[in-house]
Amino acid sequence: MYPSSEVGVPAGFPSPAQDYSATSLDLNEVLIHDRAATFILRVYGDSMINAGICDGDEIIVDRSLIAHDGSIIVASLDGEFTVKRLSIDSQGAGWLVPENHRYPPIPIFEHSDFEIFGVVTRCLHRVA
């Protein structure tokens, strides 16, 4: 059984013996860690499709979280916003890595105007 704060629905064949009940669900409690520091942004483009982030999806971005190597982030690089995976190599150099082999990694140079806007915590993907 699922914890009382979560509503679960199996994606497999339903068992007629299971008893389901609908309960109210506050999406702010489930999806957002720090309400004052959280934003929803719409994604344009296909550079993150292999991370499950598609053109037109909305992402939940939390500015209160600290980005680490491997985090998917929203960043400003030389005045342009982008969503990419942060990669930090063994020498401490940073890269913005797309999750689509058609796009090359973007180096973060020491003289670049670079700022991490926030860490992506969820993707709201539309279904057909």
Rank of each mutant, 00 (worst) to 15 (best):
E29A: 08
G45E: 03
L41Q: 12
P107D: 03
T82V: 06
N28K: 00
I88P: 02
G12T: 05
H68F: 12
F117H: 04
L86M: 11
L77Y: 03
Y20S: 06
G79C: 02
S87H: 14
D55S: 04
C54K: 09
P14K: 07
L86W: 04
I66Q: 14
R122M: 07
E6Q: 14
T121Y: 08
I116Y: 03
F39A: 15
I40Q: 05
V9Q: 10
A51N: 09
T121D: 07
D19V: 14
Q91T: 12
K84R: 11
V30L: 09
S21I: 00
A11D: 14
T82P: 11
A11E: 15
D69W: 00
H125Q: 12
D26G: 01
R102Q: 13
A93G: 05
A67V: 05
E110T: 14
L27Y: 06
D34T: 15
Q91E: 13
R126Y: 11
G45V: 07
S112D: 15
D46K: 12
R102L: 13
P16R: 01
L27A: 05
S4D: 10
G92L: 04
S24C: 09
E6H: 10
C123Y: 10
I60K: 04
E99M: 05
C54V: 10
S24Y: 11
A75F: 02
S64I: 11
L65P: 13
S47T: 05
S90Q: 01
P104E: 00
L25H: 01
L77M: 03
Y44M: 06
D89T: 05
A17L: 15
S64K: 15
R85Y: 03
R85K: 11
G52R: 01
A93S: 12
V120E: 09
S24H: 14
E80W: 00
I59D: 02
P3W: 05
D55R: 03
V119M: 07
A51C: 11
E115G: 02
G118S: 04
W95Y: 14
D69Y: 00
A17N: 15
L86G: 07
I73P: 13
Q91Y: 00
V43D: 10
D26K: 06
S15K: 08
S90V: 02
A11W: 11
G52I: 03
S15I: 09
P104Y: 01
E29I: 06
P104N: 00
P98Y: 07
R122F: 13
I116V: 12
I32R: 02
V120Y: 07
D113R: 01
G118C: 04
D89L: 03
E110Y: 00
A75D: 00
P14T: 11
